[in-house]
Computed example of a mutant assay.
Amino acid sequence: MKNVELASIFGFCKGVEASVNLAVELIKNHKGEKLYTAGELIHNKWIVNNLAEQGIIPISGPEGHEKGIVLICAHGITPTLKQQYIDAGFKVVDGTCRIILRNQKLIGETNNQTIFIGKKNHPETISTMAFAKRPSILISQVSDLDLLERNIRYDAIVQTTYSSSIISDLKEAIKERGLDVNFLSDICNSSQRRRDAVKKLCETCESIVIIGDKHSANSQGLKKIAEEEGKPAFLVSDVDDITPEILRYKHIGLSAGASVPMDVITRVRRYLINGEAACSTDSNS
C-alpha cells in the first residue's frame, strides 16, 4: 500500500466556497427560475457540470438568453458586462471573491498609471484591469517590464493566484531597472499558504500530485512549486487522469487547488492508495 501524504492546507479557499454556496442557495431558493453564472463560476469542470445539472448554467453574456438571475463568477466580470446584464433585465448576484473585489476597488481609485501582474486572458486579469481609470498595462514576465518608463510612477495590482516565483523575479528586476512601482496588492494569503504546504510535502515525498483543473492558475502554481523543488509533479482533475507513471511512486504528496471539492480529493487519495475510487467524502478515510 502506498503512503499518500496530504498537504496541511488544500482544496476550497474562502472565496471559492462563498461563490459555490451562493450558487447552491440560488438553486434551493429559486426553483423554476432561469439561473445562470457569468462565465464558469470557478475553474473546476466537476463543479461547473454539477451545478449545470441542477439548473444553473454558465453564459458569456445576456444575448440569446431568457431573463433570470445571473451569478457573477468568483474571478469577477467587467463593469461593462455587468451593466449589460442589468440593462437586459437580469437580476445580478455578485459572487466575486472579496479579495478580487478589493483589488478592483484599488485599481479603480488610484490616479497613477496602473500595471496588472498576472496571466494574459485569465478571467481575473480581464475583470480587474477593466476597473482602471485608464488602460492598465499587463505584465506577465520580466521582459514585459520593457513597456515601462523610468520617469513614471506606477501602481501595481497582482493576480491573487499568480506565480510567486515570477512575482519575486519581477520585483528584483524592477529594483535593478530603477523603476518606480508601488505594489498595492500581492497574491492572497490562501494561495501562499497552499504553496508553502506543498513545499513542506517536498521535504519528505518522492513525488507530488496536484488535483485541479488545467486552466486553474492556483493549481498550476502548486505544480510549479513542486517542480522548482526538484520533485516529479503531476496535475490531475480526477482519478481518470492518474497514469501508471504516477502510481509507480511509493510516497506521494497530495494537494489540491482552491476550486477542488472534498469528495474529489478523497476519491483521488483513495485511488492513489489502493486503486479504488472513494464512495465517501470522509476526509479521514
Rank of each mutant, 00 (worst) to 15 (best):
K2L: 00
E5G: 00
L6K: 08
F12G: 10
C13I: 09
A18K: 13
S19V: 06
V20I: 15
V24G: 02
K28L: 05
G39R: 10
E40N: 13
H43D: 10
N44M: 10
I47G: 06
Q54C: 09
P62F: 11
E63Q: 12
E63G: 03
H65S: 08
K67G: 00
H75G: 02
T78F: 02
D87W: 02
D94M: 06
T96N: 06
L101G: 03
Q104R: 03
I107L: 05
G108V: 02
E109S: 13
N112P: 00
G118S: 07
K119T: 11
P123H: 04
T125C: 09
A130D: 11
F131K: 08
S140G: 15
D146F: 08
R153I: 12
Y154F: 15
A156H: 09
T161S: 12
S165R: 13
S168N: 13
G178R: 12
Q192M: 15
D196W: 02
C202W: 03
E203H: 14
E206K: 01
I211H: 00
H215M: 10
S219L: 08
Q220V: 03
K224T: 12
E229G: 02
K231Q: 06
D241Q: 08
I246G: 01
L247A: 07
R248P: 00
A256D: 10
S259E: 01
N274I: 12
A277V: 05
A278T: 07
